[in-house]
Computed example of a mutant assay.
Amino acid sequence: MKNHCCLIAAVLFVVMTGNAQMGTVTKSKVLSDSTRLMTRMILPEKPLKKKPPVLVIVHGSGNQGSWNTYIPMISRFSAQGFAVVFFDKRGTGDSEGVYEEVTAENSEDVFERLSNDVVSVSAWAKKQARIDTARVGLLAYSEGGWVAPLALSKSDDLKFAAILSGPLCTVGQELLFTELQQKAEEVPEITLDSIYKSLADFTGKAGFDSRPLVESMETPGFWLFGGKDQSMAVDFSKAQLAELMKKSPEIPIRFKVYPNANHSLYDAETKERMPYAEDIRDWVLECMYE
């Protein structure tokens, strides 16, 4: 998505995430809507449980959705004992199909296709040996925060979702946020407060909105945000989650904010990595095993 929050830091995030040693890698071409997706499952060297829970990665935006770009992220979670499933995003790497830039106008159609890909790959994952087939979940980053709730609504195979720096607003609102953030660099009158007011008053083309799907979620969801994220509307998104949780306390969702973290969940000043992988591991142990 041009100038979109999720494009800005997607490559930075996966490059900086870590270089832990990966375990056994199984490759396959998975069919999704007649499109073949190059898919890999990575079994950890030290499983979290005897049969490890599974994280299916849901890409951030941009056309950098191929294996080499995501190896550090995969390694980080493999080191936490998860089996990790990754597929080259359609139109990138060794997957077929056409990569599509997301706009407010086409977002519903594009996310429909991307969520179908996630569901197809998740169904393939559940058939693999040596994994915990009852604990297959999603690990979504940035733009993937829109795709993941849609995929959850389509599949009984998916039991949880962890979402890193994922928006809880419409695509149109997120595009407006990015536009105003860029203008604020040259126009001092544009403050963060005025930007959030503009989001609340937004009447333009909305595009895809995951909030109704989140409101009806029955599977556990965990959102992690950076308090100094300048690439997405964090305060707006966490307020939406808090409102949903207050309105429907039975929804099994929660969120966490790392106050000094950026969109990539690194300290904005020291560049120290936030413990998001460890926090997700602990959350999965709590909500999936206790």
Rank of each mutant, 00 (worst) to 15 (best):
1 M>R: 07
3 N>W: 00
5 C>V: 07
7 L>E: 15
9 A>S: 14
10 A>E: 15
13 F>A: 13
13 F>G: 13
13 F>S: 15
15 V>P: 03
15 V>E: 15
16 M>N: 15
17 T>W: 08
22 M>G: 14
24 T>E: 13
33 D>C: 04
35 T>N: 00
41 M>V: 02
41 M>P: 01
42 I>C: 09
42 I>N: 06
54 V>L: 06
56 V>M: 10
60 G>V: 02
65 G>Y: 01
66 S>C: 04
67 W>R: 07
71 I>K: 13
78 S>C: 13
80 Q>I: 12
80 Q>C: 14
82 F>E: 14
82 F>M: 11
83 A>E: 13
88 D>S: 06
90 R>Q: 11
90 R>T: 02
92 T>L: 04
99 Y>I: 09
101 E>G: 01
106 N>R: 07
107 S>I: 08
112 E>T: 13
114 L>S: 06
115 S>T: 11
118 V>A: 08
123 A>G: 09
127 K>R: 13
127 K>L: 15
129 A>V: 13
131 I>M: 07
140 A>W: 08
140 A>S: 14
141 Y>G: 12
144 G>H: 03
145 G>V: 04
147 V>Q: 06
153 S>V: 12
153 S>N: 05
155 S>A: 15
159 K>G: 14
162 A>S: 15
164 L>Y: 12
165 S>D: 12
167 P>E: 09
169 C>Q: 09
170 T>Q: 10
171 V>F: 11
174 E>Y: 07
174 E>Q: 14
175 L>T: 10
180 L>D: 04
181 Q>H: 02
188 P>Y: 07
188 P>L: 00
190 I>Y: 05
195 I>Y: 08
196 Y>E: 11
199 L>N: 01
203 T>F: 00
204 G>F: 01
207 G>D: 10
208 F>N: 04
209 D>L: 03
212 P>W: 05
214 V>G: 00
217 M>A: 15
224 L>I: 12
226 G>T: 07
226 G>R: 10
227 G>Q: 12
228 K>W: 09
229 D>S: 04
230 Q>A: 04
231 S>P: 01
235 D>F: 00
235 D>Y: 01
236 F>N: 00
238 K>S: 03
239 A>K: 08
241 L>N: 01
249 P>V: 02
251 I>S: 00
254 R>L: 05
255 F>G: 02
255 F>M: 03
255 F>V: 05
257 V>L: 09
258 Y>Q: 11
258 Y>V: 08
258 Y>P: 05
263 H>F: 01
267 D>P: 05
268 A>S: 14
269 E>T: 15
272 E>S: 06
273 R>C: 01
278 E>Y: 00
281 R>N: 14
283 W>F: 09
286 E>N: 08
